[in-house]
C-alpha cells in the first residue's frame, strides 16, 4: 500500500517537483503552502506522515508542530528545513517531531524516513485499537 504524505512548504516550485518525484516512487502526495492550509487538509484527510518546512512566513514552526500534534497525536512529522539549529531541532523532537532533515535533502533518505514513519504510525494505531478493544471488553464484562 502506498504511503500517504502531506508535504508542507511555502516554496511552490519545491512542492511541485518534490511531489512529482515522490509520486514517481509510489507515494500518494498532497501539498499545502502554509500551516493553516495543512491544518484544514488534516481535518478532512488522514496521512501516514507530514513532511513540513519548519520556517514558513506567518508561522512559528514550534507552535504549528504543537497544534498538529495535539490534534493528531499519532501523526508522524518529518521536519525539512534550510535553517537548522541544534536548539530548535531538540525542541522540535521534544514536542514530538519524528525526524529531521536539512535542505537540500536526499530523496532516498527522505523516502526511508517516510516508510519508517508509516510503520511507527501503524504500531501506534494498532496499540490504540488494542486498548479500545480491551476497554470495550472490560466495560461489557468480557
Amino acid at each position: 500500500m502506498s504511503e500517504k504524505v502531506l508535504l508542507v512548504d511555502d516554496e511552490k516550485e519545491f512542492l511541485e517537483i518534490m511531489s512529482e518525484r515522490m509520486e514517481a516512487r509510489g507515494m500518494e502526495v498532497t501539498t499545502a503552502e502554509s500551516a493553516d492550509q495543512a491544518m484544514s487538509i488534516l481535518k478532512k484527510k488522514s496521512f501516514d506522515a507530514i513532511v513540513m518546512d519548519f520556517q514558513m512566513p506567518g508561522m512559528d514552526g514550534i507552535e504549528a508542530l504543537k497544534t498538529i500534534k495535539n490534534k493528531n497525536p499519532e501523526l508522524q512529522i518529518i521536519l525539512l528545513t534550510g535553517y537548522a539549529t541544534v536548539e530548535k531541532t531538540v525542541e522540535a523532537m521534544k514536542i514530538g517531531a519524528t525526524d529531521f532533515l536539512e535542505k537540500p535533502a536526499n530523496l532516498e533518505a527522505l523516502t526511508e524516513k517516510i516508510k519508517k514513519a508509516k510503520t511507527e504510525k501503524m504500531l501506534i494505531v494498532e496499540k490504540q485499537t488494542e486498548k479500545k478493544i480491551k476497554d470495550i471488553l472490560q466495560r461489557y464484562g468480557g
Binding site: 516554496e11 516550485e13 519545491f14 517537483i17 518534490m18 512529482e20 518525484r21 514517481a24 520556517q55 528545513t81 534550510g82 535553517y83 536539512e102 535542505k103 537540500p104 535533502a105 530523496l107
Partner: peptide
C-alpha cells in the same frame, strides 16, 4: 546571515530536486 543562507538553501533544494527530476 542565517536568514540569507536559509533562502539560499531553499533555492539549492529546488535546484537539487530539479536535477533529481531530470535523473528520474
Amino acid at each position: 546571515s542565517a536568514s540569507a543562507t536559509h533562502e539560499i538553501k531553499n533555492t539549492l533544494a529546488i535546484i537539487n530536486e530539479s536535477a533529481g527530476l531530470l535523473e528520474d
